[in-house]
Simulated assay, not measured.
Amino acid sequence: MNRQLFISLDGPKGTGKTTLLEAITKVLRADDKKVIRLCEKKSDPYRAETMALVNRLVRNPDRDLELKVCERLADSRAWISQHVLPEQPAGSIVLIDRWYPSDAAFRRILPFAEILQLNIERNVRVPDLHVGVVTAPETSWARAVARRRGLSSTVIHKLEEQVACTKAFEQAVADHNWVLCRNEGSIEDATLQVVSRIYKVLALASDY
């Protein structure tokens, strides 16, 4: 495979996504795969200004303000698509922590179809594999509150909000035929789910 394989992992807070990313990376590198780990938040040069708008949106929900947030995030992903992703080595597997699927969980007013269109119009790179990491909301909530940093979410503060976030994200996974990974058992089981799908995509890519 000469081109990069671009894979996004998204999901509600507390679903164990970061731990899963680390485990997937370890398994793939043990098989001599070249793996690059990226984080949307850390790659976004405009994140501070966008988060200031998100904080305003949390205090005063408003459709126009949410649209502005989504447009800024899409612009940032377009920038990452143009300036960060092309710099990664050919033949590598690029795993990114969050991409536009996460908007399905965290935005409350705009339909996800409209958000997706914003990203398409800006030529945001489409992952070769979308992985949605989920648990029952009560599970992710319990995991999060047990962490030293807590849920660490700007937009989710109550269990009922976590329930709504999870439900919206699972619906988007079903609507767009993304890979659903239920991370409620062992991390080894979840890792195997995702790694097996990655190898299927690699096999298809080698056929072309």
Rank of each mutant, 00 (worst) to 15 (best):
N2C: 14
R3A: 07
Q4F: 01
Q4C: 02
L5M: 11
D10T: 07
G11E: 01
G14E: 01
G16Y: 02
E22T: 14
T25V: 12
L28R: 02
K33T: 06
V35D: 03
V35Y: 07
D44F: 05
D44N: 11
D44S: 08
R47N: 11
A48I: 04
M51N: 13
M51D: 13
M51R: 12
P61A: 02
L73Y: 05
L73M: 10
D75F: 04
W79P: 05
I80G: 00
Q82V: 10
V84H: 12
P86M: 09
A90N: 05
S92D: 11
V94K: 04
L95E: 02
D97S: 08
R98F: 05
Y100P: 00
R107K: 14
R107C: 12
L110Y: 12
P111A: 13
I115T: 03
L118I: 08
I120N: 10
V126S: 10
D128H: 14
V133P: 00
A136R: 09
P137M: 06
T139S: 14
W141A: 03
W141S: 04
A142W: 15
R143K: 13
A144C: 13
R148V: 13
G150P: 10
S152L: 07
S153F: 09
V155K: 04
V155H: 00
H157M: 01
E160D: 12
E160T: 09
E160F: 12
E160G: 07
E161P: 01
A164N: 11
K167T: 09
A172M: 09
A172R: 01
V173M: 09
D175C: 08
R182D: 09
S186I: 05
S186G: 06
A190N: 03
L192G: 06
I198Q: 02
I198K: 00
L204I: 15
A205W: 01
S206P: 01
